[in-house]
Design a protein around this nucleic acid. Sequence first.
DNA 1: AACATGACTTGTTAGCACACGA
DNA 2: TCGTGTGCTAACAAGTCATGTT
Length: 594
Amino acid sequence: MHFLNESDPIKPRYIFFHVSSDGCILFRFEYKPKKIKTENGKKAKKRKQEYEDEEEEEEERSTDGSKWKFLEHKGPVLAPPYEPLPGHVRFFYDGKLLRLSAPAEEVATFFAKMLDHEYTTKEMFRKNFYKDWRKEMTSEEKSKITDINKCNFTEMSEYFKAQSEARKQMSKDEKLKIKEENERILQEYGFCVMDNHKERIGNFRIEPPGLFRGRGDHPKMGMLKRRIRPEDIIINCSKDSKHPKPPQGTRWKEVRHDNKVTWLVSWTENIQGSIKYIMLNPSSRIKGEKDWQKYETARRLKKCVERLRAQYREDWKSKEMRVRQRAVALYFIDKLALRAGNEKEEGETADTVGCCSLRVEHIKLYPKMDDQEYVVEFDFLGKDSIRYYNKMPVEKRVFKNLQLFLENKQPEDDLFDRLNTSILNKHLQELMDGLTAKVFRTYNASITLQQQLKELTSPDESIPAKILSYNRANRAVAILCNHQRAAPKTFEKSMQNLQTKIDEKQKQLSATRKQLKGAKTEHKASHDDRSKKMVEVKRKAVQRTEEQLMKLQMQATDREENKQIALGTSKLNYLDPRISVAWQEMLVHCGKAE
DNA sequence: AACATGACTTGTTAGCACACGA
DNA sequence: TCGTGTGCTAACAAGTCATGTT
C-alpha cells in the first residue's frame, strides 16, 4: 500500500479515484488542469507547446510564496435585496396589529422563518435576537415593542411555509426555468481563471443576512448577521486581469492584487469580527496540491514517529514540569488523535476544548477500574460542541504525571498550565520540519485505515463483503477521530424497510429452493433434457437469490454499525486516497475481483 | 510572552434534487 | 405518476496555525 511505503508518491494530478460504497464518493486531492484557450492550426500547436512548457514550469512551484501569477474572476454574487411582505401578512404585538418599517420587518422575518426550530425557544437566542432587532426599529417601534414574548410572528411564519409549499408545487416548466437560471449564474460567477486554468470557485455567493446560529451553547446565538454590501467587500485579482465590476452605483471596499494568498473575495463578518473568504473548489490545482502536501507531511512523520514516541516517553521523566506536560499532551494527541486545543476568547464562543486547553474537570483518574489499572476518563466538549467521551488505560508514568498536574487545582483550572498550542507546535517544528499537532491526526487516521483494511479484507470475499470491510475500516478511523453524527431521523424506519426486504428475500429464497428440489425430483424421474435444463435454471435462481439476500444483510449490518458515525469527514480530510487506490489494486491482483 | 489578525482546513447539518417503488 | 426516502452538496461555523505587534 502506498501511503506508508517508501515507494514513489503518485502525483496528485493523476488521482481522482474513490471506492464509493455508502454515498460519500468524494476523495479529495486530485485536480485536472483545464486548458482555457483553444486555437486552430499551427498557432494551436504552438500554443499547445507553450501550454505544456508552462505545465513543466508549474511542476516546480515558486519558492517566494506566491500562489499564482494571473487571477481573473467576476466577483461575488450578492444576496438578493429584501422584498417586503405583501400587505395581507400581518404582525401582532400584544394582540394588536402593528405595521413594521421595512428594516424591522426584515429582521422579524428572519426570526419568523425559524419559528419551528427549537432555537427560537432558547432564552439566549431570544435575548440576542431581540437586542439586535431593536437596533433596526424606528423610535416609534422601539417604544411600542418592549417585550419579545408579546410578539406574534405566526402569520409571517405561515406565509413562508406556504411559499415553500408553493415552490414544491411548481410545474416542471417553472422548475426548469429556475434550474436554468441557476446554471447560468454558475457559469458566469462560478469559475475563475488562475494561471491559464479555468477553475471552479467554492462558494461564490456572499452569505445573506440572517440570524446567527452558533453550535452548542453559543453566547452569540440569535444575533443579527448583517447584510454585506459591496462597500464591505475586498476583491483580490491580478493587476492585468479584467477586474470585477461592483453593481451600478456602488463600489468595492478595496481591490487588491495580493498573489501571496489564494482567496478571490473577502469581507469581515460582524458576529465574531472574523474574515470570510471566497476561495476555489477542492478540485482546483491550488487545493489539490495543498491536500497532497498534507499527506506527504504525514508520510514523513511515519518515518520518524517511533523516534518521537521514544522521545516523549523519555520526557515524562523530565525534571521540568513544562516538558512533562508537553510530553503527556503529545501522548494524548498521538494516541487519541485529539485536536491541538487553542485558547479561545471567553464569552465569544461556546465553551469547547482540545488537548492543550483541557481543564481539570474534563478528566477523571481511576487507579483501578474493573480489571484495568491507571484508567483515565475523558469527558469534554470538542469542536462543534461534540462530546468526547473515552476511557483509556495509560502507562503508570503518565498516570502519576497527571496526578501531579492535578495537584492543588480547581476544576476550572487548566490541566496543562505550562503549555499551549504555540509552545507545543514550536517543539514539534524542531522535531520535524512541517510537523504540527494536526499532522498526528492525519497520520494516525490514514495508518489506521491501512492497517484495518489489511486486517479486515481478504481478496476472495464477495463484493458486498468487501464494501462492508472497507466501511468498517473507515469506521475505525471515524471512531478514532470522534466523527459523530446525530442518528438520522428516519433511521428506525429505513432500518425497518430494509428488514422487510430481507424477510421477503428470505421467503423468496426458500420458495426457489423448494422449486429447485421439485425440479431435481422431476429430473430424476424423467431424465430428459428439458428437466435437466430446468434444474440448472432453478439452481441459478437459488444462487442469485442467496447473493441478493447476503447483499441486503451486509447493507443492514453496515447501516446499523454506522448509525451514529459520520464517515464523510475522515474520507474527505484524513484518508490518503492512495491507500484506497492501493487497496483496490491489491484486490485486483490477488483475486478475480474487479 | 501575550495578544491580535489573517488565511486556510476541518466540521456538521439543512435542504434539495433525484431515483425508486407502489 | 406520485409521494417518499436517500444521497449529496451548499452553507457556514469552528477549528488550526503562522505571523506580526505590543
